[in-house]
Computed example of a mutant assay.
Amino acid sequence: MARRVETRNESLLTRAVGAVFAFLRHAEFEIIFFLFFFIAYLLFKDVTSRPEYNQIFVKKPGGPEFWPF
């Protein structure tokens, strides 16, 4: 049985939106992977920029100590 091929007269905007959604379906894992690391970076940057959390990196007078307390 032969398939009928229809010519669709879709607008450029409709085809562009369809292409974007096709790309998002194809690259879903990579997008989620990137967003995970980006959000983790923002959270880590926020936590380490606070002075009370940054005290473990400050050297105490009296020699080197390996424990932060």
Results as ranks from 00 to 15, higher is better:
6 E>F: 14
43 L>E: 04
52 E>R: 13
57 F>V: 12
12 L>W: 07
4 R>S: 07
54 N>K: 15
17 V>A: 13
42 L>F: 12
46 D>A: 15
66 F>R: 09
39 I>R: 05
26 H>Y: 13
32 I>P: 03
67 W>N: 01
69 F>N: 01
2 A>R: 14
22 A>C: 02
62 G>P: 00
63 G>E: 04
9 N>V: 11
18 G>C: 05
51 P>S: 13
67 W>G: 03
2 A>K: 14
51 P>L: 11
13 L>H: 06
26 H>N: 10
30 E>K: 01
47 V>M: 13
56 I>E: 02
32 I>A: 10
30 E>L: 02
15 R>N: 09
56 I>K: 03
44 F>G: 03
69 F>Q: 02
3 R>C: 04
19 A>L: 12
4 R>P: 01
28 E>Q: 12
24 L>T: 08
23 F>W: 12
34 F>G: 02
61 P>N: 11
11 S>P: 00
2 A>V: 10
43 L>C: 09
33 F>R: 09
7 T>R: 15
31 I>E: 01
21 F>P: 01
8 R>Q: 07
59 K>Q: 07
49 S>T: 12
66 F>S: 06
16 A>C: 07
17 V>F: 07
61 P>M: 07
4 R>G: 02
42 L>W: 12
27 A>M: 06
20 V>M: 10
62 G>S: 10
16 A>G: 03
62 G>M: 05
65 E>V: 03
69 F>G: 03
31 I>Q: 01
45 K>E: 09
55 Q>W: 06
45 K>D: 11
41 Y>T: 08
69 F>E: 01
